[in-house]
């Protein structure tokens, strides 16, 4: 009995030390907003509008007030992923599609979301409204309002041409 007690104590201590907490963050911290670009075709016979993905020839996107470019003359894509501003509740983007420039304004609410001590806090957002000029883009609609780690792979806004 005495030996069993000591053996269990030693094993437990070794297991305890080997299971010591890992300080690295293993949680998903990726929070981005995704926009899809669509072309709308109108069927006169059935009077139904059909939206299909539009692969644009080139697209350049930058945040207004920021020098760095998010997409720089990127070819043949139909979807863009953009970061919302974590410190203000308005994010403005200058979007140039096939040499035509529009401004997209996203009004959003920001939230502090605590993940863990190892990962810290992230900012998540709720999209309240989307406004756009109408040069290349005809209109925009919000599909998913919440921008967080579980929706970052999904399309939040549809841009219609």
């Amino acid at each position: 009995m005495k030996y069993i007690t000591h053996i269990i104590l030693v094993i437990w201590t070794l297991v305890g030390i080997s299971c010591n907490t890992d300080e690295g963050c293993r949680k998903d911290k990726y929070v981005k907003m995704q926009l899809g670009i669509y072309h709308v075709t109108h069927n006169a016979t059935t009077n139904v509008n059909t939206a299909t993905y539009l692969n644009v020839d080139s697209i350049t996107v930058k945040g207004i007030g920021v020098d760095s470019v998010i997409y720089n003359n990127t070819k043949n894509i139909h979807s863009i992923t953009l970061p919302l501003n974590k410190q203000t509740e308005e994010s403005k983007f200058q979007v140039t599609i096939n040499s035509t420039t529009d401004t997209i304004t996203i009004l959003h609410t920001n939230y502090n979301t605590y993940l863990s001590l190892e990962c810290g806090c992230i900012k998540t957002h709720t999209i309240d409204a989307v406004l756009t000029t109408n040069h290349f883009i005809d209109s925009a609609s919000i599909i998913i309002h919440d921008v967080n780690t579980s929706t970052s792979a999904k399309e939040h806004i549809k841009l219609y041409n």
Binding site: V66, S91, K123
Partner: peptide
């Protein structure tokens, strides 16, 4: 108490 949890506004600049 939790202190010093920094959120970096990586693209737009600044931090909180």
């Amino acid at each position: 108490k939790i202190t010093n949890a920094t959120i970096i506004n990586d693209y737009w600049g600044g931090s909180e």
